[in-house]
Amino acid sequence: MARAQGGDGDAYRDLLENLAGVLRRYFSKHVRADDDVEDLVQDTLLSIHRGRHTYDPSRPFEPWLFAIARNTKTDYLRRTLSRQSWEILLEEQPEQAADAEGSPNLLSEALEALPDSQRRAFEHLKIEGRSVEEAAAIEGTSQGNLRVRAHRAYRSLKAMLSK
């Protein structure tokens, strides 16, 4: 990791590949579906990438790694518990709210107020009708990450439209 922090792309590639195997085994113990395991592995790798500057090479690597992995797993479990309900709401609520207010502009204004990454995730899924897989590919992120962004967008929209 120290070499990766110094910008060594090959060392970083090797490290991430090793970590992917470790993470796959770790998540397989907690999650049944292979697809979900792969989503979790990808989310964790992305988090490792974003937080790689926080690792101190003078300290053990495992506590740092598994803190991120555990956090990803916790987020996943939380998402899984609420996914069904929010996905149903995602289908219904924003349109209903716009209709109820009698102003489609309200949704547009609320969308404009969202952070770019969340707005795009929401637009891909609910306005342009893309699948999670397609949208994630366009955004260059994992499907899990895209779902999180869409979820956050939905929550923000719900809050804004219910004012």
Binding site: G9, E17, A20, E133, G140
Partner: peptide, 27 residues
């Protein structure tokens, strides 16, 4: 749905994006 191939693509992408980072100071 993600596959191991997607993960491999992601690894390639992250490795290609890797640049030197300034380590965070200790707590």
């Amino acid at each position: 749905m993600s596959t191991q191939r997607d993960t491999t693509n992601l690894l390639d992408q992250l490795a290609s994006e890797n640049t030197p980072v300034r380590r965070l100071w200790s707590p």
